[in-house]
Design a protein around this nucleic acid. Structure first.
Lengths: 204, 204
DNA sequence: CATATTTATGACCGAACGGTCAAGAAAGGA
DNA sequence: TCCTTTCTTGACCGTTCGGTCATAAATATG
């Protein structure tokens, strides 16, 4: 029975919840969960301690919300990219490029992917994180599988591997690329790698 | 001028340095650097605070040594695996399997790879970590490239991609697999994925 | 205006952190 | 035996951590 009240009683918020969440997400993204202190978050959001806790709960809660925001935004971007593609193959390529682009976020261009960073960092230890990430993974897989299936129907990708399986493979390769972007590989090399990889998937 | 003295002056160590390092490595592996407290390390090693600090320096120093131990051991295992292989293709397969096996270490079978975990966690922020990991990466690449080159010469892997580039690609795929082993994928699925992937690399 | 309700502010808290160090114990050398 | 050196033990330290809460301020309602 919680309908959004238009004129809520009490002192109104002085901050934009989503802007705060975006700022928190950014910090978690760049620094990781453990390395991000409440002090960092307060500085980034501009809020004071009480306000942050009252609005978002504790640090872990805030992180979960920031992570959800991230995966939603990411999926939306990927969805747009694949929808704009003029072919299945172009869609697959766009998805992989979007991942690289996302991983090359920020000034140092090696922040990586918050979802992947979190997965590798926390593994299966954190149940709430697992829930968010698995759901995100399923949706992401659907995007990949759809693009792959289309490309196979168009005859541009080989058909000797089931679309779901190929989608998984491509997804995993994407994750590998994004992971290594954190270290010894740059964006350009990653792009080359994508093309090399796609060449192994093309129909003969 | 530091030749190892056979009868060093002073009270002798009561612990095996390498055993302690192995224990510390294990904890860092399972929990990650930030989530591992000195208390955890003391419990795992059985040492007391002063001894640990006196023998290994501070936490970061201990971690670097543990990481070095890890990558050395890993590389040795990979080297053995590839040397035992009866063909180039078998070597490549063995390398990928070794990575999975390593990633499925421990009871929960999802500890991942300490090197990869560290790369994703720290990125380029920690200079000493970067140094260790880049050197390890180079050596690892050499192993992969050698196996790939052999397989290409034997005609079992396609030759339209330069061995170094294909080695990089395989390496990245391996990393992706190990990364996702931390989450929604199990060892068996990973093995299937390896075969699917190798099928895309085989010479036609 | 009075009251109820919500938010803003920042002082404050206990716990845990990484790290230090003084005192005692165990060895070799003189 | 006594001294020097190294290692062991664990008490101790200052800092930072995540988190709480009392108070003040701002709005809607009556």
């Amino acid at each position: 029975m919680t309908h959004a009240a238009k004129n809520p009683v009490g002192r109104p918020r002085e901050f934009d919840e989503d802007k705060v969440l975006a700022a928190a997400m950014e910090v978690f993204w760049l620094q990781g969960y453990d390395s991000t202190s409440m002090t960092d978050l307060l500085a980034a959001t501009g809020l004071h301690k009480g306000s942050l806790y009252q609005a978002f709960g504790d640090k872990h809660n805030l992180f979960i919300q920031a992570l959800e925001r991230y995966v939603d935004e990411f999926r939306r971007e990927m969805s747009v990219a694949v929808d704009q593609a003029e072919s299945g193959l172009a869609g697959v390529r766009a998805l992989m490029h979007k991942g690289i682009e996302k991983g090359c976020h920020g000034s140092d261009c090696n922040a990586g992917c918050l979802a992947l960073n979190t997965l590798v960092d926390k593994g299966t230890a954190d149940a709430e994180v697992v829930a968010v990430l698995t759901q995100a993974f399923v949706k992401r897989m659907a995007l990949f599988a759809q693009a792959v299936a289309r490309a196979q129907q168009e005859g541009s990708l080989r058909s000797d591997i089931a679309p779901e399986q190929m989608a998984l493979m491509i997804n995993v390769m994407s994750m590998g690329i994004v992971a290594i972007l954190r270290g010894p590989m740059d964006e350009q090399q990653a792009t080359v790698l994508v093309e090399d990889y796609l060449s192994t998937l093309k129909a003969t």
